[in-house]
Design a protein around this nucleic acid. Structure first.
Length: 558
RNA sequence: GGGCCCGUAGCCUAGUCUGGAUAUGGCGGCGGCCUUCUAAGCCGCAGGUCCGGGGUUCGAAUCCCCGCGGGCCCGCCA
């Protein structure tokens, strides 16, 4: 299993001990974290289930269960109703957790030679990136980092939409209307301009559509001039997108594209036909697949050209062959759920055994409705990022901490966190005020807590690994949260949902702000000073790692 | 008509997989806290039919069924 866990610390070991104990007693209940400090550190609602079997009331059943609890890290046990509340030995746990959480590789795992392939961003050639592209791009980029940190070789693929009839339109438009100077300055904006112009003109002169079809046909046949233009569009797009990816902190291992798979997809469609998985439509001659209750789908058009289902299937097989991954992950909008269901079904028919995961996410809409690039109802990604950076800069100037590099980190951090913290399935209505907010549950709030921590560490000249006899509630809450970091990462990988890490990071930062406010570090007497410094160090280590995994950098100052 | 997703305070949101203690936080509102490590912070107050109705269960925001509202998809676009 991915993310198996040889990462234990004393806290998680105690938790696992209780898990096993509950499992053995025929009352398998998950160990939970009690809502309040006075209810202990871990809890097992085990009494209710045992009551029937033991013919006792839940309280007595829980008491009987509690008698067998015997673990060196457990201080004491309280039975309340059907609950067994566990209180841990704070100092002992703290020593072990801090020892581990202050290591820079805390939460990482040894390389196991496993591999995953992640498909994300996958933009269309010659189209600008808008806020709608944020989710796939950031979710995928974050997952790639998380897997890699956990010792899994994640291969990030940007699978470009680089074929389709729009390229016929684009070629016609280019030859008629392109402004070379504008193309030099802002290539993608110019390509968008002529593409929009094509549609306007085609309203008046429908023969343009025929020209475009003809141009596309010649492109597919490999006419040199057209292929060169197509290559140019592709390269300009990649260059343009790379700038945005760099800003966002998103990396890829491979830039691929649908065009790579056209020929093989055609062959594959024929193969599916001979295998009896697909059939030829007697009326049109197209090759179709009957998915039963999901309906039918064309995989090879009647004119012999391929469709995205056949190309995606070919690409999937190619990825399996080249990378031999444990699983293949597609971070693609939920409107394509049916597509992936069919794609995976076909892959299974062809003997693919690897885990196939579609990570779906909802739309990003504007308050006035759906985005539409052609109608100009769209918010471009670079505009959002620039605005966020500008605003972050203004905030810094108020505090006299302004510097360009940190303003960028804060602005981008606000945007990335705003997207990553939300459960992916939900639709998001894009609102400037929300994404540009720097207070409360935001990226800058997390960054600020990290900056505060680092400032303390910079001022400290050193400390000893000492643990005082008593650990107060603020300190203890920090210890317990730090202890959970490896478990959180495992959960994220099991579900392929980075928002779990975002929520954890926020809780950690919030807890730290409270700790910071009530517990002086540098001015404290030993051994409290050293202890708190270790907590700050562990916090900084874990939070900055979490932020890194969420594509957020920690500023120097803010 | 069919399929998938979402519905938790004025707004946004966690928890739903794996049922368990008075439902998590944020924004906005009100009230406190800067002579001590950065107030992008901290503390407190107000604010809830967890969409509705049934069912299962000792126990349901969570599981099942029936509805309602919103979004997306439904063979030669991707």
């Amino acid at each position: 299993m991915l993310g198996s866990d040889d990462y234990m610390n004393a806290f998680l070991e105690a938790k696992r001990y209780l898990d096993d104990l509950a499992a053995k007693s025929n009352a398998s209940v998950p160990v939970q974290y009690p809502p309040e400090e006075k209810m202990g550190d871990l809890a097992l609602p085990v009494g209710f289930k045992l009551a029937k079997a033991l013919r006792k009331n839940p309280q007595d059943a829980a008491s009987e269960f509690a008698e067998q609890i015997n673990h060196p890290a457990i201080q004491r046990v309280e039975v309340v109703g059907g609950y067994v509340n566990i209180f841990l030995k704070r100092a002992e746990i703290a020593r072990d957790v801090l020892q581990k959480a202050t290591q820079s590789d805390y939460g990482a795992e040894e390389a196991k030679g496993e591999r995953v392939v992640i498909d994300y961003s996958s933009i269309n050639v010659a189209k600008p990136m808008h806020v709608g592209h944020l989710r796939s791009t950031i979710l995928g980029g974050s997952l790639r980092r998380i897997y890699r940190f956990r010792g899994v070789e994640a291969v990030g693929i940007n699978y470009l939409g680089d074929i389709g009839t729009q390229f016929g339109k684009l070629i016609v438009a280019y030859k008629k209307w392109v402004d070379e100077q504008a193309l030099e300055r802002e290539p993608i904006k110019e390509l968008l301009r002529i593409y929009v112009k094509f549609h306007e003109e085609a309203e008046k002169s429908p023969e343009l559509e025929d020209e475009a079809r003809e141009a596309y046909r010649r492109l597919e046949e490999g006419e040199k001039e057209y292929v060169e233009l197509w290559k140019k569009f592709r390269e300009l797009t990649i260059k343009y997108a790379e700038k945005i990816y760099e800003m966002l902190g998103v990396e890829f291992d491979e830039i691929s594209g649908e065009s790579f798979y056209v020929e093989k997809a055609r062959e594959l469609a024929e193969t599916l036909l001979t295998m009896g998985i697909a059939e030829r439509d007697p009326e049109t001659g197209a090759i179709i697949v009957d998915f039963g209750e999901w309906g039918k789908d064309v995989i090879l058009k009647s004119d012999g050209t391929t469709l995205y289902l056949s190309r995606d299937l070919t690409a999937l097989l190619d990825r399996v062959e080249r990378y031999a991954p444990k699983k293949l992950i597609y971070v693609v909008g939920s409107e394509q759920s049916d597509h992936f269901r069919k794609l995976f079904w076909l892959a299974r028919k062809l003997g693919v055994k690897e885990e196939l995961i579609h990570v779906p996410f909802g739309l990003i809409n504007l308050p006035e409705g759906k985005m539409s690039t052609r109608r100009g109802r769209v918010i471009f990604l670079e505009d959002v990022l620039n605005k966020a950076i500008e605003l972050a800069g203004e905030e810094m100037k108020k505090r006299e901490t302004y510097n360009e590099a940190d303003a960028r980190k804060i602005g981008v951090g606000a945007v990335n966190y705003a997207i990553l913290k939300v459960e992916p399935e939900k639709n998001i209505t894009f609102q400037w005020s929300r994404i540009l907010s720097f207070e409360g549950d935001t990226g800058p709030y997390l960054q600020y807590s990290a900056v505060r921590a680092r400032k303390i560490l910079e001022k400290a000249d050193g400390w000893n690994p000492k643990i005082p006899e008593t650990v107060n509630d603020d300190e203890w809450k920090m210890i317990k949260l730090l202890a959970r970091f490896p478990e959180v990462l495992s959960d994220v990988m099991a579900k392929d949902r980075p928002h779990i890490l975002a929520r954890y990071s926020y809780e950690l930062a919030r807890t730290f702000h409270g700790f910071y406010d009530r517990n002086p570090v540098l001015q404290s007497e030993e051994p409290v000073r050293s202890f708190r410094l270790s907590i700050v160090k562990g916090f900084y280590n874990v939070l900055s790692r979490s932020l890194n995994l969420l594509l957020i950098d920690v500023p120097e100052r803010m």
